[in-house]
Write a protein that binds this DNA or RNA. Structure first.
Length: 726
RNA sequence: AGCGGGGUGGGCUAGCUUGGUUUAGGCUGCAGGGCUCAUAACCCUGAGAUCGUUAGUUCAAAUCUAACCCCCGCUACCA
């Protein structure tokens, strides 16, 4: 039986931006987990490829700013990403970049082919050009005065003035200036200049693309809606060339000095990366073997911002390329594009400039990759946007540690201590035992299906369920009691737990590759980790009599406060902003807050408090049993009329007193006697400036208007005195 | 404004395509209990939700329809 061929890819990270957790989960990590899962299957041949997107305006501009060449900048950033991804345990068969000769040649040939097939249109337009930089300026690199609000500093695409914010055409700007020159403290007025561009004729491809999307079984519903709407609105022609030096030279006749727009070449990297991989292996035929076989399954892992590019533009390019070719010369169309929604950070957008979010490099300074991989997949935004929330992150890590890690640890510690470090044998099985063995038997298929349906989040959740069943099993079987009377029976329980531990280890392999290796090492299986297959989850046994080493916990416990302190240190050591998220402002540990001005700022500005914070207020009911005028005790009090409210919160409990100063008469106030009111019971002390008299430890909730008459919050039905209010 | 997505116990989330198998599932948190092999872990029980609002379709609606309210994206010569 021929093997199933898979090409797995992830979106190409742009070199000029360090990836954040959202980028990681959206593309590269999801792809890696899926690829790792597939590699464990018996009948698969899997390639996982991607690379850095090196070209484009931002790199060119950044290089100008730094005074180095675009190439130097791109390569150095690419190296950083390679290192970073390897630290994240992202296992690519080829992680390349878009400035390699194979890709450049492939892209150029590809577009000539499309042109030959009649999908390229030429059109002349006019744009701004900076003679100083010899650079055609994208709209956002032109700065000028907004024609609507008159504010200077408006960009060519939009006015930055928050009260205006209009979307602009660059030729509407008054007094346009080149932004790149401004950054160098020069003032240059860009000139309008005619330029020709090459366009891809998408309207020609609409029908094919519609059919392609409608007939795909795997496309996720959100993406499908988006694409079909976009086709319904009519696909625009897209310009595929740019007046920019940094990029792949456009191969069209008359297109000298122009490059291919990054989006129109980076996607081709999916194809050229395999070509390059085959060349490196010195088996160039392998390229056709993968890419020109219609049965090859190619899967693209991306964030939702990329859906149009992968479901419409990329397949469109392939359709255009394939036109008129025989089946064996055609490139294969996407089998699936698995798009995630966005990961937010504490309900906010990731933002480098505002310091909102966690970046992929700093994450690993806080915890090893396995933990992040687990928590991100556990919380993968599959159906809608999801927030990274520190408290939830803590939950996820603790779950991994307490449910899975601790189950494995309690199993092997017991075997090590009580069975002389040897896996005990099976005597006779009862229903409970069989249930666990069945669970192991079913696991590869059940969880494998979830992976194959791109339901990585559900897969993790099922793995946790299995660990929970293991814990329940141990708790019901109580082998620590059984061992006193029947050592063999107790041993059997642990044999089963050892099998289950191994099962958990392999199930985790795609997600936590390091933990997987550790667990396999503990169980001392006959196979090395790299030889293990998915089916071994149920079929590879931990043999009776196997000697095990002294167990070391697979995972560690997590302390949120420590981590946040580390995080803050990391940021501060780099001179970057650290912002304590709103949800954490009321942490018990205030070492983070004292130093964090940002946190304080938010604290003052916060419109909302967390429920946890609210829960700290003990509002209770009490009855006013007396109101009296207070004797003046000091000079300060002379001008104020102070009343003492005596509250009862039930029999046998000391009455509480509360003081209020008001210009209302005692007769007016006495009508409140006998009423039940709401008070705050757990006030520590009132600051001197507020305190009118003695130590006051409660507050009645009341409203006071400017004539100093007071309104109390009265309880309108009978409830027991001292009832807690929620 | 237009287009798109979302609003589910205190928090986070599943279910919605294909209405009934859910007295709305899970994790966490809270209250109580059990266990003591293990990393203060594990296990059990309980309380807690008008499934954004209103109207409708239906024997039956979180799920379908309409209107409305609130949140968030997109509407780039950024990738």
């Amino acid at each position: 039986m021929p093997k199933e061929k898979w090409i797995i890819t992830s979106a190409w990270p742009y070199v000029n931006a360090t990836p954040h957790l959202g980028n990681i989960i959206g593309s590269v990590l999801s792809g890696d987990v899926f690829a790792r899962f597939l590699r464990l299957q018996k009948n698969t041949e899997v390639l996982y490829v991607s690379g850095s997107d090196m070209h484009g305006t931002p790199v060119a501009v950044d290089a100008i700013k730094k005074g180095i060449t675009s190439e130097e900048l791109a390569y150095s950033k690419h190296e950083d990403i390679v290192k970073l991804f390897s630290d994240w345990n992202l296992q690519y068969d080829n992680y390349t970049q878009t400035h390699n000769p194979t890709h450049i040649k492939f892209t150029q040939d590809f577009y000539l082919e499309i042109q030959k097939n009649g999908y390229i249109i030429e059109e002349e337009t006019e744009g701004y050009y900076c003679p100083e930089d010899d650079f055609f300026l994208p709209d956002r690199f032109i700065e000028g005065t907004c024609p609507y609000c008159g504010q200077s500093g408006a960009r060519g695409d939009q006015c930055d003035n928050p009260s205006c914010g209009r979307v602009l055409e660059s030729n509407q700007l008054l007094n346009p200036e080149c932004k790149i020159c401004l950054l160098k403290n020069k003032h240059t007025t860009p000139i309008r200049k005619k330029t020709k561009h090459w366009y891809l004729d998408f309207p020609q491809l609409e029908d094919k693309l519609r059919d392609f999307i409608v007939n795909n079984h795997y496309i996720n519903p959100n993406a499908k809606t988006l694409c079909l709407n976009s086709i319904k609105e009519g696909l625009p022609r897209r310009s595929i060339t740019r007046d920019l030096k940094w990029g792949i030279p456009a191969p069209f006749e008359g297109a000298e000095n122009k490059t291919i727009y990054v989006w129109f070449e980076a996607v081709l990297g999916y194809i050229s990366a395999v070509k390059e991989w085959a060349q490196i292996k010195e088996q160039p035929d392998l390229f056709d073997y993968y890419w020109k076989d219609p049965k090859t399954k190619s899967v693209y892992f991306i964030g939702k911002d990329n859906i149009i590019f992968h479901w419409i533009i990329f397949p469109g390019l392939i359709f255009a390329y394939n036109k008129g070719k025989s089946i064996e010369d055609q490139l294969t169309l996407p089998y699936n594009v698995s798009s995630t929604e966005f990961l937010m950070y504490e309900n906010d957008k990731f933002s480098k400039s505002r310091g909102i979010g966690i970046w992929a490099d700093e994450a690993l300074e806080l915890l090893p990759a396995d933990y992040w991989r687990y928590a991100l997949i556990r919380n993968r935004p599959e159906g809608r946007d999801v927030s990274f929330i520190w408290n939830e992150f803590e939950n996820s890590i603790n779950e991994l540690n307490d449910k899975i890690g601790n189950f494995i640890h309690r199993t092997f510690t017991f075997i090590y201590n009580k069975f002389d470090a040897q896996i005990p044998g099976i005597v006779d099985l009862d229903d409970d035992d069989r249930e666990i063995l069945n669970l192991i038997e079913r696991a590869p298929k059940e969880i494998g299906e979830l992976f194959l349906n791109y339901r990585l989040k559900d897969a993790v959740s099922k793995i946790v369920d299995i660990a929970t069943k293991g814990n329940v099993y141990l708790n019901t079987k109580k082998p620590w009691s059984v061992i006193r009377t029947d050592k063999e029976k107790a041993g059997q329980i642990f044999n089963i737990c050892a099998q289950l531990s191994k099962t958990l280890g392999i199930l985790l392999a795609p997600i936590c590759p390091d933990a997987f290796k550790t667990i396999i090492k503990i169980t001392n299986l006959r196979k090395a980790p790299q030889e293990i297959l998915w089916d071994d989850i149920s079929s590879l046994e931990v043999k009776t009599g196997t000697k095990i080493g002294k167990p070391i916990p697979v995972f560690k416990k997590f302390k949120l406060n420590d981590m946040l302190r580390d995080f803050k240190d990391i940021r501060e050591s780099k001179g970057q902003k650290f912002t304590l998220p709103n949800s954490l402002i009321n942490l018990k540990d205030d070492s983070l807050q004292e130093k964090s001005q940002e946190g304080d700022k938010i604290k003052n500005e916060a419109n909302h408090i967390t429920y946890k914070f609210f829960q700290k207020f003990l509002f209770k009911t009490a009855r006013i049993v007396n109101i009296d005028r207070v004797q003046k005790t000091s000079k300060e009090m002379n001008k104020e009329t102070l009343y003492e409210f005596t509250l009862s919160i039930g029999r046998n409990i000391t009455n509480k007193t509360y003081y209020v100063n008001t210009s209302e008469s005692i007769e007016q106030l006495r009508k409140y006697i006998g009423k039940d009111v709401v008070y705050l019971a757990n006030l520590e002390k009132i600051p001197d400036s507020v305190k009118k008299i003695k130590n006051q430890s409660i507050l009645i909730m009341h409203a006071m208007n400017n004539t100093d008459t007071i309104s109390l919050i009265i309880v309108d039905k009978f409830v027991p005195l001292g009832s807690l209010i929620r």
